[in-house]
Design a protein around this nucleic acid. Sequence first.
DNA 1: ACCCAGGTGGCCC
DNA 2: GGGCCACATGGG
Length: 204
Amino acid sequence: MLRRRFGFQHWWPGESTDEIVIGAVLTQQTSWKNVEKALANLKRENALSINSISRIGQRKLERIIKPAGFYRQKARRLRNISASMIGQYGSLDAFLHMKKTDIRKALLEFDGIGNETADAIILYAADKRIFVIDAYTKRIISRVYGFEKDIGYEELQKTISENLKGREWIYKDFHAQFVRLGKEFCRTKPFCENCPLDEVCKSI
DNA sequence: ACCCAGGTGGCCC
DNA sequence: GGGCCACATGGG
């Protein structure tokens, strides 16, 4: 199993790479509380692995992950992703041991995995350095950069990554901080009163 | 009775 | 390349 050396490894509460990948898809536009219920159901059904999901039936999987919302879509996507990982790459482990750029390319070809989910999987499951940009990060960064209009995902990622040079170790911590702070202070608006994020943002 | 959550893909222009 | 929309449950 891949190891993570630095803090916040418990921030993504997966105990296995399978759980992290499955959780990454389930949590799309969904609160983690609901995802936890779905993950608990999977565990109880002995289906919390890419291998099991590649063999489970659509209806059964729908029933199991229902609390996570978008359950028909997510069941279909998880089954396809799992079947492809096993069928084309042999195993999840083999898949995650490829080069970072190859993993990202392969992930983006799956239906149901976009930039953010791909990068979360690369950072937390494959344990390779990449900066994950989610809604919270975008919101906070937009403060620092004076609310730059419509900056694309990969452009924003590149900008941040360049500014992180020499401090790669903070990738996981930084993302976690963004999510925590974003939840607390910047829920809906790019700007808010008395926001204590300025200091944090300056440290980019 | 709203609004939101650790997105993605399809369709339209 | 941007602006909507569907997808669905559970919590505030």
